[in-house]
Design a protein around this nucleic acid. Structure first.
Length: 216
DNA sequence: TGCCAGGCCGGGT
DNA sequence: ACCCGGCATGGC
């Protein structure tokens, strides 16, 4: 069994299914993906709650909403001025190019939809992959800070490896299965939050504590 | 209290 | 092709 598969099995057996993404609709997932950039999810929930409360969690509403009004609503998510612009960039893109229909974006297939998302200012590789996987159900692998930290700590990656390097490695060695990729990334986040924290790591209790990559 | 959280952009080398 | 400063709130 490859290290990539074994890594997954260990986390899954220890923590079980994670039921990601925490969001009710595909559009909510997109908004959450942008708001959670370098930000605690708890703060993002407050911002999303504000949007819901004001009936603003819809492409058309956000498209027509003034920038400053949007910024106030998403304030708890931090970086609220830049994120207001990023959200506007995304909904403008969605409305003007796809009539507000995410399905039409995803229907183009993984590679094309990914390029399209990456053309939006404010959507980088992680945000794009999160949207593609968790809102679109397309089989792309999401890399984030937790993923990289865990991989480095177990000698499976080096600091100088970039986003695309890591993503390609996972996608080369695993079946392109959206369910698998969904669960895999969620487990990385769960392990990263719980055990692989930079400050107070709990390596003794980590599901990966005795993981050794000699079969690579 | 200071540090951190599910990044990304733009300008400069 | 990298490197870096800036962006900001809330919890532990």
């Amino acid at each position: 069994m490859s290290v990539f598969r074994e890594l997954f099995e260990r986390m899954y057996q220890a923590l079980g299914p994670q039921h990601w993404w925490p969001g009710e609709t595909p559009f909510e997932v997109c908004v959450g993906a942008i708001l959670t950039q370098n930000t605690n999810w708890q703060n993002v929930e407050r911002a999303i709650e504000n949007l819901k409360k004001h009936g603003a969690l819809a492409p058309r509403v956000l498209y027509e909403m003034p920038l400053e009004e949007l910024a106030v609503l998403i304030r708890p998510a931090g970086y609220f001025r830049v994120k207001a612009k990023r959200l506007k960039n995304f909904v403008r893109f969605l409305m003007e190019k796809y009539g507000g229909r995410l399905e039409d974006l995803f229907a183009q297939g993984l590679d094309r939809a990914r390029e399209e998302l990456l053309s939006v200012s404010g959507i980088g590789p992680e945000t794009a992959d999160s949207i593609l996987l968790y809102a679109g159900g397309l089989p792309t692998f999401v890399i984030d800070a937790y993923t990289k930290r865990i991989l480095c700590r177990h000698g499976l990656a080096t600091e100088e490896m970039g986003y695309e390097d890591l993503r390609e490695r996972f996608m080369k060695h695993l079946p392109h299965d959206a369910e698998l990729f969904n669960e895999y990334h969620a487990l990385f986040v769960a392990v990263g939050k719980e055990f692989c924290r930079p400050r107070h790591p709990r390596c003794e209790e980590c599901p990966l504590r005795d993981f050794s990559p000699e079969k690579c």
